[in-house]
Design a protein around this nucleic acid. Structure first.
Lengths: 132, 132
DNA sequence: ATAAGGCTTAAAGTTTACTTCAAGTCAATA
DNA sequence: TATTGACTTGAAGTAAACTTTAAGCCTTAT
C-alpha cells in the first residue's frame, strides 16, 4: 500500500512541508513519485520516518541523522557501525537526562529559596496589618 | 567585592560576549560601571547569573527568563507569582524528562532491531565463508 | 606622544530547523 | 475550455541564541 504526503502527515504527525524538507535534506532517500511527480510513500518509507522521528525526538541533529541514513544506504556492511552509533547516541541522551536531573535539583533549591522569601514577606505584611 | 567581566566569565563559565548579550536582553539589570563605562559585577550580580544559568540549563528561553527578571524588578509583591512560575517550570521539565525516557525506550527498540539484523548478517557471512 | 591592549557599542552574520512565498505543473470539474 | 485545487520547486524568511565585526574610547607602557 502507498500513501500520499497528507496521509503520511496524519499518520506520523509530521507536516507535509517537513516531510519535503527532510527529503531535501537527504533523510528520506528513494521516495517514489507518480509519473507527474507526486510523492507516494511505501510502508518502508514509513518505517524510515519512524526511525528518523525516534532519533529526532531524542535530540539527534538532522546532520547526524543524515550521516546515519547515508551509512544505511551503503548496505549491510555498515550494520555494526550503525549499532554502535545508536548505542553511543543512547548513552549521550542518558547522560543528558542525568544532567537535566542535576540542573532540576538546582531549580528546586531556587524554589525553596523564593518560597522562604515569600513566607517572610507574608509574615512582614501580616505584622504590619496587625500593627495598624 | 567586585569582578571584571573576565573574572565573572571564568567563575560562571559564561563567555564575556554572552554576559554582554544577556545584559542587552534584560537578563542582568543594574550591572554597575566604572566612570569610563567598564562593567563591574557585584556578588549580587553573580547570584542573578547563577539563577539565570540554572533556568537556562533547564531549557527556559531567554524571553521567559526576562519575564521572570522583570517580575523580580517589580519587588516583593511578585514573590508568590515567581514561586508559581518556577514550580510550573519545574513540572514542565519533569514532564520533558519523562517524555525523553519514553523516546529513549524507542531508541532502545531500534538498537535491538539493528543488533538482530547485524547478527543475521554475521551469520550469513559466516555461512558463506564456510561454504567456500 | 603614541602605540598597544582591553573594554565598549551597534549591527551584521551564523546555525538549526523549519515555514512561507512565488511560480509553475497537472488532473478534475463547471 | 477555463478554472479550481492539490501538488511541485527553489528561494527567501523566521526564531532563538549566540558570535563576529567594525569602530571608537581609555589606560598604560614605551
Amino acid at each position: 500500500m502507498e500513501y500520499s504526503i497528507h496521509q503520511v502527515s496524519e499518520k506520523m504527525h509530521i507536516r507535509p512541508t517537513v516531510l519535503r524538507f527532510y527529503e531535501k535534506e537527504g533523510l528520506l532517500p528513494s521516495v517514489r513519485r507518480t509519473p507527474s511527480g507526486i510523492r507516494r510513500y511505501t510502508g518502508e518509507d514509513l518505517e524510515w520516518i519512524g526511525l528518523i522521528t525516534c532519533l529526532k525526538n531524542t535530540g539527534m541533529s538532522i546532520k547526524q541523522i543524515r550521516e546515519f541514513v547515508d551509512l544505511s544506504l551503503e548496505g549491510d556492511g555498515t550494520l555494526k557501525r550503525r549499532c554502535e552509533l545508536l548505542l553511543e547516541h543512547k548513552k549521550q541522551v542518558e547522560a543528558q537526562i542525568d544532567e537535566m536531573h542535576r540542573h532540576l535539583d538546582k531549580v528546586a533549591c531556587k524554589i525553596e529559596f523564593f518560597s522562604r522569601q515569600y513566607a517572610q514577606y507574608q509574615k512582614a505584611q501580616g505584622d504590619r496589618s496587625g500593627t495598624a
